[in-house]
């Protein structure tokens, strides 16, 4: 298998995962000796079927796997931020209070950063709204603002757009690309959407049974990505779908 084909950048790795093993008591390992590096500013998308260990990997990087048995080495930057599939806004706190929740700066500065982040995601003026008053897409934008307001060195995203409708999802892709151009965190995004992975990431990693089954760089790394050059996109897409499993076809990719 042609893993590491794209050549890993060994300079300034923001994330280093070595021989990571995780299992949930039932015996079978969910992660089975996984190695992964993410360079500073690099966007890595993780694809995989359910049970492939992609969420377990993300939770391990986020430090959310308190009661999970395992071993291995995980090095992440100090300032890590997580975007979940649900926006995970506290319903009892107004939008701005949600954005600045846990912000390290003194309150006044934190609120200023929060307002700026809200403006960046196009929600200036909604600071005093309750989360329940916002649409699903808006809530997810607030959650992005919450992550960006603390200028993370590593952004972990667990199917961040999985619960959104197709149109909103495309808009969010544009927004995310735009935000990343300005903030440059390293990103690890778990997704089940092959196209989303190709369109957004610099590198796509397919997990299978707790190991890396395939690893590919995406065709273009500048703004003129796939739409301008559909050829390489289609080839990569076919290759990734192949790696995801025999019963994978484009129509069923959402169930992965």
């Amino acid at each position: 298998m042609a893993a590491h084909a794209g050549g890993l950048s060994t300079t300034a790795a923001a994330v280093v995962v070595r021989d990571l093993v995780r299992s949930y008591g039932t015996g079978a390992g969910v992660l089975d000796g996984l190695d992964l590096e993410i360079a500073a500013g690099e966007f890595v998308a993780i694809l995989g079927r359910s049970g492939s260990g992609k969420s377990t990997l993300l939770r391990a990087l986020a430090g959310l796997d308190h009661d999970v048995r395992g071993s291995g080495r995980v090095e992440v930057p100090r300032n890590v931020s997580v975007v979940f599939q649900d926006s995970r806004l506290l319903p009892w706190a107004r939008v701005l209070d949600n954005v600045v929740l846990g912000h390290e700066a003194p309150p006044a500065r934190a609120r200023e950063a929060g307002r700026a982040a809200l403006a960046e995601v196009g929600l200036a003026g909604r600071e005093r709204a309750w989360p329940n008053e916002l649409s699903g897409g808006e809530q997810q934008r607030v959650s992005l603002a919450r992550s960006l307001a603390r200028s993370p060195e590593l952004l972990l995203a667990d199917e961040p757009f999985g619960a959104l409708d197709a149109l909103t999802r495309l808009r969010m892709h544009d927004l995310l690309r735009d935000l990343l151009r300005r903030h440059h965190p390293s990103v690890l995004m778990v997704t089940h959407d092959v196209d989303e992975a190709i369109v957004l990431a610099d590198r796509v990693v397919v997990l299978d049974a707790g190991r890396i089954a395939l690893e590919r760089r995406t065709p273009a790394r500048d703004g003129s990505r796939p739409t301008a050059d559909p050829g390489p996109h289609r080839t990569l897409r076919a290759e990734l779908l192949e790696a995801l499993g025999p019963d994978t076809d484009p129509a069923r990719k959402d169930t992965l």
């Binding site: 986020a62 959310l64 997580v82 979940f84 649900d86 995970r88 506290l90 009892w92 929740l101 846990g102």
Partner: peptide
Amino acid sequence: KRYVELAETLRLDRRRFVTRVVLPGAL
């Protein structure tokens, strides 16, 4: 539990966890 996870990823200390998440949630 998702809010507890959120509080963990936001690195809330126990005091802020109680005042921002637990008390309003239990209100």
